[in-house]
């Protein structure tokens, strides 16, 4: 689906969105309900496979902060079809880690202050951009065409010095390292998959209705239940318990 199709399916005509440079998008939509007033959903997005650099991260963070400062505690929806972080000397010189971290922090602050934060992954996303946007939301949903990745297999082959053929073979049997939506679902990163064949507004309403319950789930517990990360949740629990013992 394109962003326009997604927005139409979510909000009908009740949305206004501005697209900025570098694949950035922001605006809001009104999610209708059978009874009662519509829910104002604030929107930000990183689209067209854009890489996320210092300028884009700051601009998106500004939008999130404005929504938080408005104080409505309304849902924030993050649309994502991105590349990785922008790889340039300038970005590193200026402290890209702080800008990406800051964007993630604004989303996590919004969540702490009562905004349901939802990521909608409808295309690619990789590495630092994936962490600073999609993974910084409380609940991440995905359309079937989503392509999350940490790194593509050819680059991985260069760095690990393992042959591309071997990595391709292993990828089919080993969800823990290979790119792809199904693997990220197993890791607990993606909460649910939306069906593009059905109206998205109903799927968003359903998610918001159960948001409190959904946001109680931890990603590592979901990963244990789905069989993708068998150790993470148990290790974290043990460390937490032992750290608190006679502490």
């Amino acid at each position: 689906m394109t962003p326009a199709e997604i927005l139409d399916s979510l909000f009908g005509r009740s949305h206004r969105v501005e697209s900025g440079a570098g694949g950035l998008l922001h605006g809001e939509g009104l999610l209708a309900h059978a009874a009662g007033p519509a829910t104002r959903v604030s929107l930000i997005g990183l689209t067209q496979g854009a890489a996320l650099g210092v300028d884009g991260a700051l601009a998106l963070a500004q939008r999130v902060l404005s929504v938080v400062q408005a104080g409505e505690r309304n849902p924030i929806l993050v649309l994502i079809d991105s590349g990785s972080q922008r790889m340039s000397r300038r970005d590193e010189l200026l402290g890209l880690n702080e800008y990406l971290g800051h964007l993630a922090k604004t989303l996590m602050l919004a969540e702490q202050l009562g905004h349901p934060t939802i990521g909608l992954l409808y295309g690619g996303s990789a590495a630092g951009a994936f962490i600073a946007t999609a993974l910084a939301t409380r609940v991440l949903v995905a359309l079937p065409e989503a392509r999350p990745a940490v790194m593509d297999l050819p680059s991985m082959s260069r760095i690990t010095k393992l042959s591309l053929e071997l990595l391709r073979d292993m990828a089919s049997s080993t969800p823990v390292f290979a790119p792809g939506l199904a693997n990220m679902e197993l890791m607990g990163a993606v909460t649910e998959r939306w069906d593009p064949g059905r109206p998205l507004d109903a799927q968003l309403r359903r998610l918001l209705d159960r948001f409190a319950e959904r946001s109680q789930e931890r990603r590592d517990q979901r990963a244990a239940a789905r069989g993708g990360r068998l150790k993470a949740a148990a290790i974290a629990e043990r460390v937490e318990r032992e750290a608190l013992r006679d502490g």
């Binding site: 996590m108 990220m184 990163a189 990603r219």
Partner: peptide, 25 residues
């Protein structure tokens, strides 16, 4: 992220950031 377990590492980093900011709050 450790590439041999890239997906697990990537999600762990997000979990670390969430836990840090909850602790700081």
């Amino acid at each position: 992220v450790r590439l041999q377990e890239a997906n697990a590492g990537e999600v762990a980093i997000a979990e670390i950031m969430h836990a840090m900011l909850q602790a700081r709050a």
